[in-house]
C-alpha cells in the first residue's frame, strides 16, 4: 500500500477514472450546443480576418483564412494532404495499439509479482518523471528514418503511460476484496482474473484517453526530427518556408485526427462500460 501511494505522488500524468458523463437532456439541447460550437469557430475566424483587415495581424506571420482554404484545396487536389494524413495516421494508430496493449498487459501482470514491483519501483518513478519525448532522438537512431521509428516512439511513450496507469489500477483495488477472495480460498490467478483485472479497467481506459495525445505527440515529434512524409513533416517543412497557410492546414488536420481517435476511444469506453 505504501508503495502505491509513493507512485501516486510521483505521478503527474495520471488521471482519475473518468466520472460518469451526464446525458444531454434532449435532442434540442444537443442541437443548440452544436450551433454554439459552430458559432465559436466562426467567431475565431472572424476575429482573425478582422485582425488582418485592420492590419493588427500580419498575413506573413499569421497566415490568412482564405490562404488556408486555398492551401487546403490545393493539397487535397494533388493528394499530398491525404498521403501525409495517412502516414501519420498509421504511425499513431499502430504505435497506440502496440503501446497500449503491451503496456496495460505488463502493468496488470506486475500485480502478480510484488517482488518485481518493488524492484522496478525506482525505474517506474524515473520513467514517469522523464519527458518521454526526450527519448525520440535515440529511437530514431535505433529504428531508422522511416515510419518504423515514429511508430516506435508512439509505442514506447504510450507503453509507459499505459503500464504505469494499469499498475496503479491494480494497486487501487480494494484490499478487502482481495481479502474476501483469499478467505474464499481463491488462488492468486483467480483473484487476478476475477477482481484485479476487471477492477483496473477504469484506469486502463483513462490511460487510453491520455495516450491519444501521447501517440500523436510521439509521431509528430518523430517526423519533426527526421522524415520525408507525414503531417509533422509537412508542418515543419512549411514552417521552414514561412508557408504559414500550409502550417495551419497541417495543424487542423492533426486536430481532426485527434477528434477521430478520441471518438473511437470514447466508443471503446462505452463498450467496456456496457459490459460492466
Amino acid at each position: 500500500m505504501a508503495m502505491a501511494t509513493d507512485i501516486g505522488e510521483a505521478k503527474k500524468q495520471t488521471a482519475a477514472p473518468p466520472a460518469p458523463k451526464r446525458r444531454p437532456r434532449n435532442s434540442t439541447g444537443r442541437l443548440r450546443i452544436m450551433a454554439y460550437q459552430v458559432a465559436v469557430l466562426i467567431a475565431i475566424v472572424a476575429v482573425w480576418q478582422i485582425g488582418l483587415w485592420t492590419g493588427t495581424l500580419k498575413p506573413y506571420v499569421y497566415g490568412t483564412p482564405w490562404g488556408v482554404m486555398q492551401a487546403f484545396a490545393e493539397q487535397i487536389a494533388n493528394g499530398t494532404l491525404l498521403r501525409h494524413f495517412w502516414v501519420t495516421g498509421q504511425e499513431v494508430i499502430i504505435g497506440f495499439v502496440i503501446g497500449c496493449s503491451l503496456g496495460s498487459l505488463c502493468g496488470l501482470m506486475l500485480w502478480l509479482s510484488p517482488l518485481w514491483a518493488k524492484i522496478l519501483h525506482p525505474y517506474m518513478i524515473a520513467l514517469n518523471g522523464v519527458p518521454k519525448i526526450a527519448l525520440a532522438p535515440l529511437i530514431i537512431v535505433w529504428f531508422g528514418l522511416g515510419m518504423e521509428s515514429k511508430i516506435a516512439i508512439a509505442a514506447i511513450i504510450t507503453f509507459i503511460v499505459a503500464f504505469l496507469q494499469a499498475y496503479k489500477g491494480t494497486q487501487e483495488v480494494d484490499q478487502d476484496l482481495i481479502r474476501l477472495m483469499k478467505s474464499l480460498g481463491a488462488t492468486q490467478w483467480q483473484t487476478f482474473r476475477k477482481i484485479v483485472m476487471p477492477g483496473s479497467v477504469p484506469w486502463i481506459v483513462s490511460a487510453l484517453r491520455l495516450n491519444v495525445g501521447f501517440a500523436l505527440i510521439g509521431a509528430v515529434v518523430g517526423e519533426y526530427i527526421s522524415a520525408e512524409e507525414g503531417l509533422g513533416y509537412m508542418v515543419y517543412y512549411a514552417g521552414q518556408l514561412y508557408d504559414l497557410d500550409s502550417v495551419w492546414v497541417g495543424i487542423f488536420s492533426l486536430m481532426f485526427m485527434a477528434l477521430i481517435l478520441e471518438a473511437v476511444v470514447a466508443r471503446i469506453e462505452k463498450m467496456l462500460d456496457m459490459e460492466k
Binding site: L177, L184, G185, Q190, K194
Partner: peptide, 26 residues
Amino acid sequence: GYMLQKDLLLPWRSVIDNVTLGLEVR
C-alpha cells in the same frame, strides 16, 4: 464465509453473478 460492513459487491457484475462468486472460486 465473510461478511463485512462494506458489502464488497463487484460493481461490474450483476446481482446473480455476485452471488455465484464463491461457487466459481470453488
